[in-house]
Structures are given as structure tokens and as C-alpha cells.
Simulated assay, not measured.
Amino acid sequence: MSDFTTVYQRRNTNSVKWDSVEEIYSITDASQVLPMWIADMDFAIPSPITEALQRRLEHPVFGYSKASEETKTAFTNWMQKKHQLKIENKWILFQQGVVPSISAVVEAFTEVGDKVLIHTPVYPPFTIVPEKLGRVVETCRLTEQDGSLEIDFSAFEAKLKSGVKVFILCSPHNPGGQVWSKEDLTKIAALCQSNNVLVLSDEIHSDIVFKPNKHIPILSVAENLNNIITIFAPTKTFNLAGIQAATIIVPDEQKRKVLEDHALAHGQMELSIFSLTAFQAAYEHGEAWLEELLEIVSSNMDYVVDQLTSKVDGIKAFKPDGTYLLWIDYRDTGLSEKDMMDLLLTKGKLALEPGTKYGEAGNGFLRMNVACPRMTIEDGVARFIKALT
């Protein structure tokens, strides 16, 4: 059994989550603030990964590294077992994370001034990266009803027809936690294909899905795999953000060559010895840990939703289909985002993420990370209730 109860001291470990609160939230003293914002967990990683890294450290030479076929097969076996998706080893390209992967694909397959389409609200780099590359970001707002997000396909199709080159899909959705249906994904793939729009699907949260929901890779429903590029990573699943590793799955040989040339042009080398070691160990030996994690996070979600909705007037929260991120609706409180954040930080001593970080469509919402021990969850909920009552 793994340890999901120990509260680890993460302050002064160069943790973005714990040591950047003063900077991120513009406060002078964050020593008493509980951070439940950025998407990493406060749980120890699976012990087989730690053991694999320790074994590698016993060898005293850390030279240039490369991904072995065994490393790739660990991932393809996982995808076949967990998501019934058959991936060929040759489709796999490695990258130092999902955001660098998005940047590489957008830069390689569009030109300055080209249009990139996203749904909103959505993970901020979907907007930031294309804009910093000089692309024009088009948005299609998701509709929300009782915690469920829906795609306005009429608006989506109209945007696709406006000259969009790439559509970036978030599946499962961050911050809403929506696991898209087979019907939605099939329609997205078909519309993008018919309008000659490349689909870039970020599926980093695919392993953190609560029963009876099931993640469906868009590659498994698309008629033309050559029009799809998908990003996966072990970093959300196994709390490995600091090792910086992701895979870009590119079935089309010509597109793989374009991305390989792009990597050479930008001096991007193979993943580090330690990234590859952790990557392989996670996919070979992490399944039992993940099953325990899903139970813990699901229980945390149930607790937070029950407490906040029953004890704080004007708060709506619904258990998401997946992710360990809760999307909290506070619009009925009548509070502005500034007032809400001030109350949470100054009265509750709690750092959550403001919804507008995910676009204007997120106004009136907060994002809360519940991937932490129950003691921390109870503390965070108590702080939230104190701030609002």
C-alpha cells in the first residue's frame, strides 16, 4: 500500500506551488497561506519510480541518453491496456513537457499571423503560447450547465471555416474536468478533417478519470489519424512534473519529420537519463499506485463538494468526470473576482486560482487542487468556509 496520508513539508524546496505564492498572488507574507492552486500533487511519487532512480544513481556515469525501445514499449503497453489505443513505437517523439510540445507543433505547422482555435475557459498556455509565437488565437466558448461543459458545434464549425490552421483540444478538460464523449470527439475530428484543420489534443489528464467515466483518445475515433497529433505525459498521472517529460504521438510520417527537424533547429535533445528512467518505471510499475490515487482523489472531491455547497451560500460545485481539479462556481455570491480572492487570501489564508486566468469565460469560478492528504483537504475547506462566512 502507498502512503497518501503523510503531509510532506514542501516549503523551501524550490516548489512553485509552495514557494511562489508571494510572487504569484502579490502578497508580502505567504507563510500562513495554504496553496491549493497549481496542478501538482502533495503526494509522494510511486515507490517503484524512486527505486528505479536510485538504481540509476548507483551507476556513476551520466552521459548522453536516448530512449530505448523498452521505454517506448512501456508507454504503448500502458495505452493499450488503459485506453485500448494501439500506438506504434515509431509514432512517438519525446519532448520536455506538454507546453513545449504545444509550442513545437504550433510553430512547426503554422506561420506568424495564422489562426489557432481553442475552447474557453481553458489551460492558459493554450492562449499564451500561440500568441507569443505571433499567431492569432480564436476562441469558442464552452457552455456550462450544472458543472457539465458542452461544445457549441455551430459556433465551433463557423470558427473552423474562418481560416483556422490548428485546433488545440483539452481532453479531459482543464479546468472543467469534462471527459468528452465519443460522439463529441468523433464530431470534432470529422469537422477538423473536412476543414483541413490540424487537431492537437492535449490528453495529459487522461489517466485521472473517475468511474463510470472513461477517457477516449481522439486517435481512437478519428477516421484520418494523419490529421491528429496527441500529447501524453506521465507527469500529471504520477506527480512527476519536475522531471519534464512528455510524448508527442504523430502517426503521419511527414509530420513526424517536420517535428524532428523543428527539434534539431531548436537544439532540443533527448530527454535526460532521469526523465527516461522515471518515465519507463512509471508506465511499467505505476498502475497499483494510480488505482489507490483515484480512490483518494475521488473521495476528496466528494468531501469538498459536499462541504462547500452545504455550508457556503452561493457556492456551486460539482464532482468532475476527471482530473484532480475542482471548478467552483461562486457567481451566486455576488462577489467580484477581486473581492473573492481578497477574502480567500486575507481572511481564509487560502490560495486558489481565479477563473479569469483561464479566459474571461472563467469569470465567477475558482480552480481548486484536491490532490493532497485528507488533513490538508479538511484544512483547505475550513479556510474556504471561514473566508466566506
Score class of each variant (00 low, 15 high):
Lys90Ala: 12
Trp91Phe: 13
Trp91Asn: 08
Ile92Phe: 06
Ile92Thr: 06
Leu93Arg: 07
Gly97Tyr: 08
Val98Ser: 12
Ser101Trp: 03
Ser101Asn: 01
Ala104Met: 15
Val105Trp: 08
Thr110Gly: 04
Glu111Tyr: 13
Val112Asp: 07
Val112Met: 07
Gly113Thr: 12
Gly113Phe: 12
Asp114Arg: 13
Lys115Trp: 09
Lys115His: 12
Val116Tyr: 01
Ile118Glu: 05
His119Thr: 14
His119Gln: 09
Thr120Ser: 13
Thr120Asn: 08
Pro121Met: 14
Pro121Asp: 10
Pro125Ser: 10
Phe126Cys: 13
Glu131Thr: 15
Lys132Asn: 15
Lys132Cys: 04
Gly134Asn: 13
Gly134Ala: 07
Val136Met: 09
Glu138Arg: 11
Thr139Phe: 05
Cys140Pro: 08
Cys140Thr: 14
Leu142Trp: 06
Thr143Phe: 03
Glu144Ala: 05
Gln145Cys: 00
Gly147Gln: 04
Ile151Pro: 01
Ile151Phe: 04
Asp152Lys: 08
Asp152His: 10
Phe153Ser: 07
Phe153Val: 02
Phe153Asp: 12
Ser154Met: 00
Ser154Lys: 14
Glu157Val: 04
Lys161Asp: 13
Lys161Phe: 00
Gly163Lys: 06
Val164Asp: 13
Val166Ser: 05
Val166Tyr: 01
Ser171Ile: 04
Pro172Ser: 08
Asn174Glu: 15
Pro175Arg: 07
Gly176Ser: 11
Gly176Lys: 06
Gly176Arg: 03
Gly176Val: 08
Gly177His: 01
Val179Arg: 02
Trp180Cys: 05
Trp180Val: 02
Trp180Asn: 07
Ser181Leu: 02
Lys182Gln: 11
Asp184Cys: 00
Leu185Val: 04
Lys187Tyr: 07
Ala189Pro: 03
Ala190His: 08
Ala190Cys: 01
Ala190Leu: 14
Leu191Ile: 02
Leu191Cys: 09
Asn195Leu: 09
Asn196Lys: 15
Asn196Pro: 00
Val197Thr: 05
Val197Ala: 03
Val197Leu: 02
Val199Gly: 04
Ser201Val: 01
Ile204Pro: 00
His205Asp: 08
His205Met: 14
Ile208Leu: 11
Val209Met: 10
Val209Glu: 08
Phe210Val: 01
Pro212His: 02
Asn213Phe: 05
Lys214Pro: 01
Ile216Leu: 07
